[in-house]
Structures are given as C-alpha cells and as structure tokens.
Amino acid sequence: MKISISIVLYNNSIPMLQKTIRSVLNTTLDITLYLIDNSPIDTLNIFASMDAQIKYLHNPSNPGYGAAHNIAITNSIKSGTKYHLVLNPDVYFEDGILEHIFNYMNSHSDVGLLMPKVLYPNGDIQYLAKLLPTPWDLFARRFIPIKSYLDKLNRRYSLTFFDYSSIVEIPFISGCFMFLRTDTLKQVGLFDENYFMYLEDADLSRRIGTVTKTVLYPHVHIYHEYERGAYKNFRLLWIFIRSTFTYFNKYGWFFDIHRKKINQQTLQQLGWIES
C-alpha cells in the first residue's frame, strides 16, 4: 500500500534537508516523496536524482505553504494513495517510525489525522498539540513577553500541563508532521490556500475534527529543529498577522461556539484543573 509524503522547500539548508530525506527514505514502506520547491532558483534540484522514489517540482511562483502541499496531495489522491504525510524540511526521525504510524492508522479507521510526540534535538518536548486558538492566545504569545504570564497561558492553550503519555484527541495538530487519511481529505478538502503560511494547519485540523478523530500519538517521537521564524523576521511576522485575520474572519473572532465546545471537551479529557 503506497504512502505519499510532501515537503515544501524554500532556500533550505542542504545538510538539514539531507537528514530529513534520509529519514523518509529509510523505510520498508512503498512511498513517493514529493519535494515542492518554492525557491526562486532550483538549487535544491540536486535531490531530484537522490532516489527513484523522489519527485521534484520547482514552483518559483511560490503560492504558499499549503498551496504547495496541495499539489502533492492532489496527485496522491488521484493515484489512489491511502495516506499522505505533510512534513517539514527540518524534521527527522528514527527507523521504524513510519511503519509504526502506518500500522496504527490501518487498525484505527476512525482516525483521520495523526501527529506523534515532537521533540527538540535535545530531547525536550515541543508542545505542538494545542487548543483551537482565540485571538488573545495568538496576540499574547507574540506581543506580551512576560514569562510568568506566558507560562500560565501556555499551560492551557499549548496544553503544557499534559505529560504526553497517552493517545488523546487534540483539535489543533501542528503542520510539521501531519499523517493524513486521504479519504478524510476528500470529505473536508485540502489546505485552504487563502493562507500563505501559518494557521493553515489549525484550519485543516479543525475541519478534519468535524468528521473524524485528530490525535496525538505519543508512543513514537520525531525531532524538529523549529526555528519560530515569525518571532525573528518582520516579513514572517506580517504574514502571520495576515493569517490570523484570515483564520478568525473565517471562524469568528470572539464568538465561536464550536471553538468553545471543542476546547472545553479537550481540557476535560486531559484532566485540566483551572489554577
């Protein structure tokens, strides 16, 4: 059974990308790896001949992160592939991870989206399983640099009180590693291309969660370099702000009954106690 994987590129570090691609290719599964390169120049085409399982596409018009992944996902669906993995170019993992996730998804047909435990290279947990965001969650995390306050906010929004020890449903799965069931994508659609970058993963997670389970699967882990570009680059910050407007204009700013209900259910499931 074939699995497709897509990585969207933009002037990436070659050594880091080699590490990611080796992780993907070192599997017993039958895969197709799509490298969608949004870079202005096709320098990264050196990876096109690395393996017969790689399909490289130079896309210098740079339509955005989700739109580039949609190119690969559309091909995946057309070819009848059952699963598609959306993967960041700064993620790597050990042998057997894809096989483990593949077997879990095969035996749990009620799961449409899965993310494993995500670690920093030093082994610390990245708290990338989140509630559906409110405007205040996103504003405060970016513009209020008070550690004590952010720790309290993240304890709830980023679920840092949870120890990542059990399989749980989470409404917002990070786009760094989204293992997707293509039949589910046929129901809810692909990435919303109105987002150039940022929050397209929150949007897709939310839509998938209306028809099937979106789960954190902590029994396997991956490593993610995670540079948080919007915190360091004004252009990326502006893109992030535009994405927040796109997201909340779509789902509601302060009155979002679905968000409130799903977040309350998630907190109750995880045993949240208000402090």
Rank of each mutant, 00 (worst) to 15 (best):
T28G: 15
L29H: 15
T32C: 14
T32A: 12
L33G: 07
L33I: 06
L35W: 04
L35P: 00
L35F: 05
I36R: 04
N38I: 06
P40L: 15
P40W: 11
P40R: 13
P40N: 11
D42M: 10
N45R: 01
I46P: 04
F47G: 09
F47V: 12
S49F: 09
S49L: 13
M50A: 12
A52N: 11
A52Y: 05
Q53S: 15
I54S: 02
I54Q: 00
Y56I: 03
L57P: 00
L57C: 02
H58N: 00
H58K: 00
N59H: 10
N59G: 01
N62S: 12
N62D: 13
P63C: 10
P63M: 15
G64E: 04
Y65A: 07
Y65C: 11
Y65G: 04
G66Y: 03
A67K: 11
N70E: 05
N70I: 06
I71C: 04
I71E: 06
A72L: 03
A72N: 08
A72F: 02
A72T: 06
A72C: 05
I73L: 11
I73A: 03
T74D: 11
N75Y: 10
N75E: 13
S76P: 03
S76W: 08
I77S: 01
K78T: 14
S79L: 11
S79V: 08
G80E: 08
T81R: 10
K82S: 12
Y83F: 14
Y83R: 03
Y83A: 03
H84M: 06
H84R: 04
L85I: 11
V86G: 00
V86E: 00
V86T: 03
L87W: 09
L87S: 08
D90C: 06
V91D: 02
Y92Q: 02
F93A: 08
E94M: 11
E94A: 14
G96R: 09
I97N: 04
L98V: 02
I101E: 02
F102R: 07
F102G: 03
N103C: 02
M105I: 10
M105P: 00
M105N: 03
N106E: 10
N106Q: 13
S107Q: 12
S109Q: 08
S109I: 09
V111A: 01
V111K: 02
M115V: 13
P116Y: 09
P116F: 07
P116C: 13
K117V: 04
Y120R: 15
Y120G: 14
P121S: 07
Y127L: 07
L128M: 10
A129E: 10
L132T: 06
L132F: 04
P133N: 01
T134W: 10
